[in-house]
Design a protein around this nucleic acid. Structure first.
Lengths: 185, 185
DNA sequence: GCGTTAAAGCAAATATATTCACTTTAAGGT
DNA sequence: ACCTTAAAGTGAATATATTTGCTTTAACGC
């Protein structure tokens, strides 16, 4: 039988590879990260990385998804304003941090991505967002559509990061306010 | 003396290289485009490309900027709604077109870009936007800040393209409406 | 613990990108 | 037309990424 063996060494290689990839990405930019470099920094054999991930793009993508879920879990604070505010602030902080990879940069940098892959990666997040908005509605709050949140909260945050415009809590809060006002209007 | 010679052959090489780069980018994705491939398709020597642009990223970036300015000049239609609507619809159409490179994809894919380079590339566009909004104000119309246009018109369009969400004229129009309403509110 | 074998490591082969030293072509000034 | 030389081309050298075949290690089931 073919039994998987995700424990011990395998897990260690993955952790070391992801950490090396993250570090290299923030130090020298996503598109300068290569398999041999990751392998060297992680202290593992390049062959192991090629075998498991095929190419740098896939490795970076998996790393970024894992990090996204660990670092930016969708909040559940009891009110929608609180949830949105916390989430927006966290994203702003992450985009500012120079130890963090920008998830959307990775999404774009690893572009070969078929629409299936993209969907596979994004769908769970979208579900979490829907869940967050659903909870708000169950509490009797009025909540915007998920699409509106993407359009007027997430999109501006990432766009500003891409354009090199400053991002802070005040700005994040303003986006939340605009989003909720537009909805009631 | 060192006199430049941008005419004749030099211009032809540039045109052929840009066209080859565009075609390859839309066919196989930005990150699969290589110098040797561009050279082959363009029918020019790889050395010429390396000498002139240094690396693929710079070549793609220059190509994308040139295309952006040719394909999406900022409109001047006489009213702000008309300007914004036309612009938004053009961007939506460009993002849908499978013969067109997505400028922001390039901006991100060629990430090594220093903030100076980024500024250098984006500043002219920002000025054009400011000019467009300025014209509206001179006509006595009330116009949003350039930042708002970026946050609530440009950002959603590109974000939806990245996420693989559908983009059409109706959606573009809706964004324009929301933008102008939010402003007056 | 022990055996099986998934997954890592190693070394060498191959493919691909990039640079270098040099030659040829033709743009722009006279 | 003719010179000068910027810019393109050529072929070979080098560097770097990727693949391949084989060996070693150690995770998981008994």
């Amino acid at each position: 039988m073919s039994t998987r063996r995700p424990g011990g060494r395998t897990a260690i290689v993955k952790a070391k590879a992801f950490e090396a990839a993250r570090a290299l990405a923030v130090e020298q930019g996503l598109h300068n990260v290569t398999m041999p470099e990751i392998a060297k920094r992680a202290g593992v054999a390049p062959t192991s990385l090629y075998r498991r991930w095929g190419d740098v793009g896939s490795l970076l993508m998996e790393m970024a998804v894992e990090r996204l879920n660990e670092t930016f879990p969708l909040p559940d604070e009891g009110t929608l304003v609180a949830d949105l505010t916390l989430w927006a602030r966290r994203i702003a902080a992450g985009l500012n941090a120079d130890t963090e990879v920008n998830f959307f940069h990775v999404l774009l940098a690893t572009t070969a991505m078929s629409s299936e892959t993209r969907h596979h990666v994004l769908a769970p997040r979208l579900e979490q967002l829907d869940a967050m908005l659903g909870r708000a509605r169950l509490r009797g709050e009025s909540a915007p559509e998920a699409d509106s949140v993407i359009d007027h909260l997430i999109a501006p945050l990432y766009m500003r990061s891409v354009l090199g415009m400053p991002l802070d809590d005040r700005y994040a809060d303003k986006l939340v306010r605009t989003l909720l006002e537009t909805m009631t209007a």
